[in-house]
Design a protein around this nucleic acid. Structure first.
Length: 835
RNA sequence: CCCCCCAUAGCCCAACCGGCAGAGGCAGCCGACUUAAAAUCGGCACAGUCUGGGUUCGAAUCCCAGUGGGGGGACCA
């Protein structure tokens, strides 16, 4: 080491010094059995291997790592694994574009990301690494599918599905954005009727919704809100309407069974089976009109359909329904404002009290009957909706409603349900916005669905699950397969792979579809406990010992999809008896985005900050400190607002403090400078709470403050040999190791200790050093600060008040006015109110 | 249209249960060191908390209304 290197901070030299040492020590490998320490499972959402790591990864993995390192410092065994979410469309599309094997492309990217992670140095347990595209992993994906299939939770149905015309595959509802475009390709999604595999997530809708309550305070409020909206439970009643000339009754869902007497017509979705059936028995003109209308609505894009301002359209279906409560005969219409896949695809229309129904009634001159007397604040009845064009949806007293008359809305809803149940024509019911999870994809780079379809006359239409002993169903080589999107799965063309003859000589064809990659990521956290185990998906004993995940960290872009699916699969595995917990993620941290000049970074905008170049230029520590210090982790970071050089400057200052310490390691701190010791112990006392509340930026600020104070003590106070200086430097190294592991390790070595500071337990704050012997109390007169009193910490309320009254400045402020009230809050304030 | 979150120095952000608006940083200015610059060190200055009401002895903090920004849902019966 040259003289120069010894006293100037060189991040490259420090990285080069410690990386090999850590790789030798493997300090973050934790056996499943752990030790006798308590356990924490800290997980970052695993990355997708599209190219190298980017700044978003840098941020996410920084925060996860701070928490993992924190809990280690607090005396826990911490499991902090890493893997790759390596199946999926982007890899496949990129592979098509470059004419390479998706497998090669994917694993090359993984290798690159691993190399970047090595330098960035999150405290991963590398012995547990997994890739979802390994047969050793997706075998268990198939196992999971078969478990779901056995339980009736995986099923096939023909339905209108979201079709991405660019990627040429179906999409889950969750993958279609609000504007009707695909979240992946950006193409306008169209509807296609196809037979597809689904997971029955709607069976779990109530639990998925209700169990969110227990996560309150541990998950971001925003994510809870989004999940609740997504599940979208409505409570009300199912009412059965008879349709003249039809055997079976038609159920409709309503949140307002109290308004049944106001139902003056029925509307069915044009693309529903019921509409088609009713049209068959309608008059020829009505049938023709309906056909035209149906064609018209199906031409509409999702975007047009979602435009709420457009006028109501519809056709009369030439049928009448009977209102079960009053026997009234009401016309049945078809209109696209009723959705086929929500509720029962049919509604009872109450135009007086529902705006959509009113708009429709006014358009087609259907009757409007007020059954709830809704009043405004002055007690005046609101105007008749037919005239005003405004439906009255609020609370009020029921009228024109037979037995419900005189009841208020809530009572009337309850009573209406009772009436329906007594008569057997309805019941209380709930319905959800959430739909079953469509999991089949017509693409190559995913987990093959382990199902065989009958391929000869004798077994045509039959389905058979692949036996557990035959798993995994491996993906065939991509060589010779046309991976280009063409609307059917590339695997179907792999005839040799797809054709199967069983022991009895019967011919079968493999299901050609692959699973949505969200299946892969819905349970990966369980696999980390036994990523090499080829006898089971996961080890229930180990999983129950470590799980659920104590701290999950990742992007808010997964607020619905990934988190909802993981919660669902966790509940299923709980119900199957594998898990003793029902929620996978006890606490969740969502980091914000890294922006540049207020905009999302992208190559096309030319505002990309490259992770690799930042890492090379400033080093891992400066980058991590910058990200942690930029602000609250859940806020977006604008790279234009931060200074990586500033972080580097701070690290150099901290590092020099350690180098200046002149006392020996192991020296007794007790005799050290009291002021500095107090400062150090205040930091030690505050840091845990700050970290646990994700206030990383505040902890970094406190470390800067501690470095500044220590610098002053060395240069102008106690001096470099004072034990308090060593105590402070050691505390800085230990806490700084969460953010800047290399620098902290080097400081630790300079302070005469052996690696690694990452496994060092935090020194305890000494309560005796935290008590102040003097306090400053503020005296306010009529809310204005008039004096500051320095008083002993043991001061009583009466003494403080006396001192305040004795103050000259206070007396001047009071003058000759009378004191109305004196409030004393030791040790903060004396507040004097004048009359 | 409905729901949720946010607003503090030029900028990024702190401020516990309502109790002195400032912990830290960036940018700025002055000075020390230097032949000079960089780095480093020392110092300085900067807001009364988006607006308007209310509660309180006391409000950045609680309540109401609004403005601006962000997010979610939305023809969901």
């Amino acid at each position: 080491m040259t003289e120069q290197a010894a006293d100037s901070y060189d991040f490259q030299a420090i990285q080069d010094r410690w990386l090999p040492v850590w790789e030798e020590l493997k300090p973050f490998e934790v056996p499943n059995a752990g030790s006798d320490k308590p356990k924490k499972y800290v997980l970052d959402m695993f990355p997708y291997p599209s190219g190298d790591l980017h700044m978003g990864h840098a941020e996410a993995f920084c925060f996860g790592d701070v928490l993992a390192r924190y809990w280690r410092g607090r005396g826990y065994d911490v499991l902090h694994p890493i893997g790759w979410d390596s199946f999926g469309l982007p890899a496949e599309n990129a592979a098509i574009k470059r004419g390479v094997d998706p497998r090669e492309w994917t694993y090359a990217n993984i290798a690159q990301q691993k190399a970047s992670f090595r330098i960035y140095a999150p405290s991963f347990d590398w012995s547990r690494v997994l890739h979802t595209s390994d047969p050793e992993y997706y075998k268990w994906n198939q196992w999971l599918f078969l478990k779901m299939y056995e339980k009736g939770l995986a099923y096939r149905k023909a339905s209108w599905v979201n079709w991405d015309p660019v990627d040429q595959t179906v999409l889950a509802n969750e993958q279609v954005l609000a504007d009707g475009t695909s979240e992946r390709s950006g193409a306008v999604v169209v509807k296609k009727k196809l037979t597809q595999w689904y997971f029955r997530i709607t069976d779990y809708a109530d639990r998925l919704l209700d169990d969110l309550d227990a996560l309150e305070g541990h998950w971001p409020a925003k994510v809870l809100n989004m999940q609740r909206n997504w599940i979208g439970r409505s409570t009300g009643a199912e009412v059965e309407f008879e349709i003249e000339g039809r055997e079976a009754k038609v159920p409709v869902f309503t949140t307002r069974p109290d308004t049944l007497y106001g139902a003056t017509f029925m509307v069915v979705a044009p693309d529903s089976d019921l509409a088609a059936e009713l049209a068959v028995s309608a008059s020829p003109e009505a049938r023709m009109q309906f056909q035209e209308y149906l064609t018209e609505t199906q031409r509409q894009s999702e975007i047009d359909r979602q435009n709420a301002d457009r006028p109501k359209t519809g056709v009369f279906l030439d049928h009448f329904a009977i209102n079960p409560v009053n026997g009234e005969r009401i016309p049945v219409w078809a209109s696209d404002y009723v959705l086929a896949d929500y509720g029962h695809g049919a509604i009872m229309a109450v135009p007086a009290h529902d705006q959509r129904d009113l708009d429709f009634a006014r358009e087609f001159e259907l009757p409007v009957r007020v059954v709830v007397d809704v009043r405004d604040e002055t007690g005046e009845s609101l105007p008749d909706p037919l005239e005003s064009g405004v439906a009255t949806a609020g609370d009020g007293v029921l009228v024109n409603s037979g037995p419900l008359d005189g009841l208020r809305k809530a009572e009337a809803i309850a009573r209406a349900i009772e009436v329906l149940e007594e008569r057997g024509t309805g019941r209380a019911a709930k319905t959800y916005r959430l739909r079953d999870w469509l999991i089949s994809r017509q693409r190559y780079w995913g987990t093959p669905i382990p199902i065989l379809h009958g391929a000869e006359e004798g077994n045509a239409g039959e389905m058979r699950a692949v036996g557990a002993s035959e798993l995994p169903v491996r993906l065939p080589a991509s060589e010779g397969l046309d991976l280009k999107p063409k609307g059917s799965s590339p695997l179907g063309a792999a005839t040799e792979w797809a054709s199967v003859t069983d022991a009895a000589g019967t011919a079968w064809t493999r299901d050609p579809d692959t699973m949505d990659t969200f299946v892969d990521s819905s349970w990966y956290y369980l696999r980390f406990l036994s990523s090499q185990d080829d006898t089971q998906a996961f080890d229930p004993t180990a999983v129950n010992a470590w799980g659920p995940i104590d701290q999950y960290a990742g992007g808010v872009e997964h607020a619905i999809l990934h988190l909802l699916y993981s919660r669902f699969i966790t509940k299923v595995l709980h119900d199957l008896g594998y898990l003793d917990f029902e929620e996978p993620f006890s606490a969740l941290l969502n980091q914000g985005m890294v922006l540049q000049d207020g905009a999302k970074m992208s190559k096309s905008k030319g505002n990309l900050v490259e992770f690799a170049s930042e890492l090379g230029e400033h080093g891992a520590d400066a980058l991590r400190v910058t990200l942690a210090f930029a602000g609250p982790p859940e806020d977006d970071i604008d790279w234009a607002d931060v200074s990586v050089q500033g972080s580097a400057k701070f690290l150099a200052r901290a590092w020099r403090v350690a180098g200046d310490v002149a006392s020996e390691a192991g020296v007794d701190f007790a005799g050290g400078d009291a002021t500095l010791r107090k400062h150090t112990h205040q930091l030690l006392a505050d840091a845990p709470g700050l970290i646990e509340h994700y206030k990383f930026n505040v902890v970094v600020a406190r470390l800067m403050d501690q470095v500044n104070v220590t610098r002053k003590a060395i240069d102008a106070g106690a001096g470099a040999a004072d034990p308090a200086v060593r105590e402070s430097a050691e505390a800085i190294a230990v806490i700084l190791s969460l953010f800047a592991p290399y620098t902290a390790e080097d400081m630790w070595a300079k302070l005469g200790h052996r690696p690694t500071v990452a496994l060092e337990e935090w020194p305890a704050a000494d309560p005796a050093l935290l008590v102040e012997d003097e306090v400053t109390m503020v005296v306010q007169v009529n809310g204005k600060v008039r004096d500051r009193l320095t008083l002993p910490a043991s001061v009583t309320e009466a003494e403080a008040e006396a001192a305040a009254r004795a103050s000259e400045a206070v007396q001047r402020a009071i003058g000759d006015r009378e004191i109305a009230n004196v409030i004393v809050r030791v040790p903060k304030i004396v507040s004097i109110a004048l009359r």
